[in-house]
Amino acid sequence: MATIVVEHISKSYTNDKKTQIGISDLSFTVNKGEIFGLIGPDGAGKTTLIRILTTLLLADSGTASVDGNDVVKDYKAIRNNIGYMPGRFSLYQDLSVEENLNFFATAFKTTVEENYELIKDIYVQIEPFKTRRAGKLSGGMKQKLALCCALVHKPSVLFLDEPTTGVDAISRREFWDMLKRLKTQGITILVSTPYMDEANLCDRIALIQGGKILVIDSPEEIKHNYKHALWAIKTEDMFKSLIDLRTFNSTLSCFSFGDVHHLSVKDNITTKEDILNFLKEKGHTEIDVQPISANIEDCFMELMTKTNTSNTLVNA
């Protein structure tokens, strides 16, 4: 059963008298109880889409519904049933942790006690600081409090707009653990993120760039559908080998991925030996070449170059 249905949604902005496409002709569905990830860089249109679904923006064309309610006609019903955590920290900095939570509970006509079970896991982590002003919390803490506030009325769908941006690797990991626990409670979650590695933690993802969806599928399927042969390469002088590999005949693309380069080749006949020989010829030492399978970032970059959306002007 589809909880969120998006059909041909478009929205453009005017900026300096130029019309810029925010998002164009997006369609997808999110099933009940799944974690759906919108993955893409800043300016891809993630926030615009989430704001349309949370009834805060009107689309130029297309229709969308949440829990069977139309985002335009039934916006009141939607507002009563969803939880929303905007991109920037949007709690009252001059109110304490407790006061913020109580305020949002009453705003949604409920009490903290009524739905305590749902937020308990998260709230116990910030409880020691409950009398502290929200503005004085650390990044990770603020994010946990914001999540509690978005959950306090037990929403059926949770919209999270870049909840992990600017948050350190540890807090990010903890945050995703929390989302997984929420999923077991039957809450449908739509989350956006610019971090490609978080894609693997979603049930299904949409890779978006320049207002368009590059692909929608489960992370496994997307990786599985990567067409080209891919090699992980290590050499003594990493920067030089990167430049050199780009001049290699069979090279489709070559990018650094942490401590290795990912080399994708045009054909399936290029062998490990070919690459080794090429690098040796160029005078490289300590060469290591291993075949690998693609990760989400490889897929994103490939799809990005294919649709050539990387340098189009998009509304940031």
């Binding site: 893409g40 860089p41 800043d42 891809a44 941006t165 600017g166 610019p194 490609m196 760039q209 990018f255 650094s256 970032e297 994103f300 970059m301 990005m304 170059t305 990387s310």
Partner: peptide, 10 residues
């Protein structure tokens, strides 16, 4: 490089 696409980041 916060929020930048993977190609630009590289």
């Amino acid at each position: 490089t916060g929020g930048v696409d993977p190609i630009t980041r590289r």
